[in-house]
């Protein structure tokens, strides 16, 4: 069969030649895919609505020699709430960039798909930060970089005291006794550590109930960003804009 149907979340849309665009999708059936949307920038295009970034669509794809293309499309959900606030759009860009960076093509993962779908469903301007942290931790765990937050990564003993250290290179927390001055570490309070555990455990739709103070928020942000950048080996592009909005 040259044509096949996918349920897809649109991650990115990049202008190609003329009115064509290269669309990056995360599909339920095939994982991440890059496809061509021909003529989608034309005013008469019927596919345009279904390939807008951060929307959930049913797409009929056609196999091509080098790249598959979109034959037909029908939007299922456009996530209107996230489009109405600057924080919502910035966070959606960040989440989409995370999925684009941490997944490979034609490697389906229903957990990642549902995680992104749930995040876009509840994403609004006011709870975007907490949602983004929880999403990032869960995504990293799912792709094989689960941070160790229960025991010290060196002595395997439960961490005690007011403060603990997070080592991005070791992928977990380290107790005061095992911490050496040479290794770069991020200081986090025990309260922030408990918040991190809650973020990983709680369902996406319940996350709006979590309240995190400003100083704990700064610690969590620094820890998650360092952890992501260590594994990604680069800075996320959307970070600059998110920082600008604070």
């Amino acid at each position: 069969m040259r044509e096949y149907l996918v349920d897809a979340i649109i991650l990115k849309s990049v202008r190609a030649r003329d009115a064509d665009r290269i669309i990056t999708l995360y599909t339920k059936q095939h994982g991440k895919k890059r496809v061509m949307a021909h003529g989608v920038d034309r005013a008469v295009s019927k596919k345009r609505g279904s390939v807008q970034p951060f929307s959930y669509s049913k797409l009929l794809l056609r196999r091509g020699r080098e790249i598959d293309s979109i034959d037909q499309g029908e939007p299922i959900e456009i996530f209107q709430d996230l489009r109405q606030s600057l924080e919502g759009l910035a966070t959606a860009s960040y989440l989409a960039e995370l999925v684009d960076n941490f997944t490979s093509e034609d490697d389906p993962d229903p957990v990642v798909f549902n995680l992104l779908l749930d995040a876009f469903t509840v994403l609004k301007g006011d709870c975007s930060e907490v949602l983004s942290w929880a999403f990032e931790l869960k995504l990293l765990s799912q792709v094989g970089y689960c941070p160790c937050l229960e025991e010290c990564v060196f002595c395997d003993q439960p961490v005690k005291g007011d403060k603990v250290f997070f080592l991005p290179e070791q992928g977990g927390v380290v107790c005061n006794n095992c911490k050496t001055a040479e290794v770069p570490a991020i200081l986090i309070s025990l309260g922030s550590l408990e918040s991190l555990k809650a973020l990983m455990r709680w369902e996406t739709r319940m996350l709006h109930q979590i309240r995190i103070g400003m100083s704990a928020g700064r610690e969590i942000q620094a820890m998650i960003r360092a952890f992501t950048e260590y594994h990604l080996e680069k800075k996320m592009k959307s970070c600059n804009f998110i920082d600008l909005l604070k």
């Binding site: 990115k12 759009l89 910035a90 860009s93 960040y94 989409a96 960039e97 592009k237 959307s238 600059n240 804009f241 998110i242 600008l244």
Partner: peptide, 10 residues
């Protein structure tokens, strides 16, 4: 235009 994913800011 602002495009966070492409790193284009204000």
């Amino acid at each position: 235009a602002i495009s966070p994913m492409s790193g284009i800011g204000p």
